Amino acid sequence: MGKHVVGSTGDIKAGERKIVRLEGISIGVFNIKGTYYAVKNSCPHQLAPLCLGKVTGTTLPSKPGEFLYGKEGEVVRCPWHGWEFDLTNGQSLFDPNKCRVKTYEVGVEAPGEEEPRLETFPVDVEEEQVVVTINR
């Protein structure tokens, strides 16, 4: 448990990711528009290496006949079966109320929920160093 330097801000530029192993856990650290997010490198569906998936955007709610595209660079798609997760909040795109990422920043978990969750970890920038914190 603790803080781990995973590189400098120059090591993980906007739109890039870095996969690291911290305390025995494979974690993907993503730089999305200058903000860093860290998620466990394991899809809750069938444990695929989620962080190797394509990072993209998605269609947004819109009126009939309109197709709005957004969240570019904020969605990771599982390389095995295409399950998609919002990297900024950990929610799945297909069922955000049941399959959510466990986030350490807010600590929100539905009690007794049996759906799989993807673990995330808080990320800070300290003196140009990207730091991931693991709290167990």
Score class of each variant (00 low, 15 high):
Met1Asp: 12
Gly2Trp: 12
Gly2Ile: 14
Lys3Phe: 05
Lys3Cys: 02
His4Tyr: 14
His4Asn: 13
His4Ala: 10
Gly7Ser: 04
Gly7Asp: 07
Ser8Asn: 06
Ser8Gln: 05
Thr9Met: 03
Gly10Leu: 07
Asp11Gly: 02
Asp11Met: 03
Gly15His: 09
Gly15Asn: 06
Glu16Asn: 11
Lys18Ser: 07
Val20Asn: 01
Arg21Asp: 09
Leu22Gly: 05
Glu23Gln: 10
Glu23Lys: 10
Ser26Thr: 01
Gly28Ser: 06
Val29Ala: 03
Phe30Glu: 02
Asn31Ile: 08
Asn31Thr: 06
Gly34Ala: 15
Thr35Trp: 15
Thr35Asn: 15
Tyr36Arg: 03
Tyr37Pro: 07
Val39Asn: 11
Val39Tyr: 13
Cys43Ala: 11
Pro44Val: 07
Gln46Gly: 01
Lys54Leu: 09
Val55Cys: 00
Gly57Gln: 11
Thr58His: 08
Thr59Gln: 02
Thr59Lys: 07
Thr59Gly: 01
Thr59Ala: 00
Leu60Ala: 14
Pro61Cys: 13
Ser62Met: 11
Lys63Val: 00
Lys63Ser: 01
Pro64Phe: 11
Gly65Asn: 11
Glu66Trp: 11
Leu68Lys: 13
Tyr69Pro: 04
Tyr69Asn: 05
Gly70Leu: 10
Gly73Phe: 12
Glu74Thr: 05
Glu74Lys: 09
Glu74Arg: 04
Val76Leu: 02
Val76Asp: 03
Cys78Glu: 03
Pro79His: 05
Trp83Asn: 00
Glu84Asp: 15
Phe85Leu: 00
Asp86His: 01
Asp86Ser: 03
Asp86Ile: 00
Thr88Phe: 01
Thr88Arg: 07
Gly90Ser: 13
Leu93Ile: 07
Phe94Pro: 03
Asp95Tyr: 08
Asp95Pro: 01
Asp95Leu: 12
Pro96Leu: 06
Lys98Leu: 01
Lys102Val: 05
Tyr104Trp: 15
Tyr104Gln: 15
Glu105Cys: 04
Glu105Ser: 06
Val106Phe: 15
Val108Leu: 14
Pro111Ala: 09
Pro111Gln: 09
Gly112His: 12
Gly112Asn: 12
Glu113Ser: 15
Glu113Arg: 11
Glu114Leu: 08
Glu115Lys: 00
Glu115Ser: 08
Arg117Asp: 00
Glu119Gly: 09
Glu119Pro: 02
Thr120Tyr: 10
Phe121Gly: 05
Pro122Leu: 06
Val123Asp: 02
Val125Ile: 05
Glu126His: 03
Glu127Ile: 12
Glu127Asp: 15
Glu128Gly: 02
Val130Phe: 06
Val132Phe: 08
Ile134Cys: 11
Asn135Leu: 14
Asn135Ala: 12
Arg136Leu: 13
Arg136Gly: 10
